[in-house]
């Protein structure tokens, strides 16, 4: 019997691989999948009072969510802000990744460190630095006043959606740079030369060859920027004010002082559903669009 098992083990890569994966998968099921399924379950329950929950199935919380203009507008604003952030970050980071992938020959490692270092510095502190810069008595205002360019602090920058967009675009820059760089760096340079050889200008070559081939990086960057930023809590709280408030604020209140877990669960589930569907649509559309161009 033992010998039989031993033989089976030796023969099967599947068994060996899953043995090694056991802790990771147990963790995934217990700490990620089950809690999320439970959260979805809770979205169908009802909070009666502070400590009591009615566990009978109802879709009322979803109806409630879509009947509250505050919640739907926060959801819409979250998606809108993340959308702009993703677009701005991609657009501004692409030329940098392009430059490092195709023009930098020496000290590439140094540039790579430069690209990824901000990724590791405290997220909270990176956001905090923008509070210092954009604040009413912050770097920009006090700097401009010291230079005598303005006499009163500019108030429209801080505590607004604009502040949230600027701060998030900065905070997530590394997440755009790295996937873009990796996908651009992989492109065989002779493909670009072949396109030039076949009569295309630099710009045409970019649209017909380089950009389509860098799509995995573009889509990767969209995924890792758009999804997390929709749920970002720190930035809107720190620099957004009332105008820049996002859905995460309500989720936090439902789990905190309001104490309505089913309602919080509904908000979380809707947020996840929204990002998942939008990401899929955007990735698909980007792919289709470039296929037509090429």
């Amino acid at each position: 019997m033992w010998r039989y098992i031993n033989k089976l083990y030796a023969r099967s890569d599947n068994v060996k691989a899953y043995t090694l994966l056991t802790p990771a998968l147990i963790f995934f099921f217990c700490v990620m999948l089950t809690p999320m399924l439970l959260t979805i379950a809770f979205s169908f329950f009802t909070q009666i009072n502070m400590n009591e929950i009615d566990y009978s199935f109802t879709t009322d919380r979803y109806v409630e969510f879509f009947n509250k203009p505050l919640l739907t507008s926060l959801l819409f604003k979250s998606v809108k802000i993340s959308f702009i952030v993703t677009f701005v970050t991609l657009l501004t980071a692409y030329p940098v990744a392009y430059y490092i992938a195709f023009y930098v020959k020496k000290n590439k490692t140094l540039w790579l460190i430069l690209m990824s270092l901000p990724f590791w510095t405290s997220y909270l502190l990176r956001i905090f630095s923008w509070k210092i810069i954009l604040g009413t008595k912050g770097v920009i205002n006090s700097g401009l006043i010291t230079l005598g360019l303005i006499s009163e602090p500019l108030t429209f920058i801080m505590y607004s959606q604009t502040a949230v967009v600027i701060t998030l675009s900065h905070a997530w820059a590394a997440f755009a740079l790295l996937p873009l760089y990796v996908s651009l760096d992989k492109i065989d340079y002779s493909l670009i030369e072949a396109s030039r050889d076949l009569g295309n200008s630099r710009l045409e070559t970019f649209w017909r060859v380089t950009f389509p081939l860098s799509l995995p990086g573009v889509i990767g960057a969209i995924l890792i920027i758009f999804i997390p930023t929709v749920g970002d809590y720190v930035t809107p709280q720190m620099v957004g004010g009332v105008d820049g408030r996002m859905l995460s604020y309500m989720i936090q209140s439902y789990f905190g002082k309001v104490n309505n877990i089913p309602m919080g669960a509904v908000s979380a589930v809707i947020m996840l559903a929204a990002v998942a569907s939008i990401t899929m649509i955007v990735s698909y559309a980007t792919k289709k669009l470039t296929q037509r161009v090429a």
Partner: peptide
């Protein structure tokens, strides 16, 4: 792109994102 020459590359440089006929029509 302005020269009357065309090249067959060492590794062929076939564009991986489009099919054979589109590769041929590319230029």
């Amino acid at each position: 792109n302005k020269r009357p020459t065309n090249m067959v590359f060492q590794n062929y440089a076939i564009f991986p994102h489009i099919n054979v006929v589109k590769n041929i029509q590319f230029g």
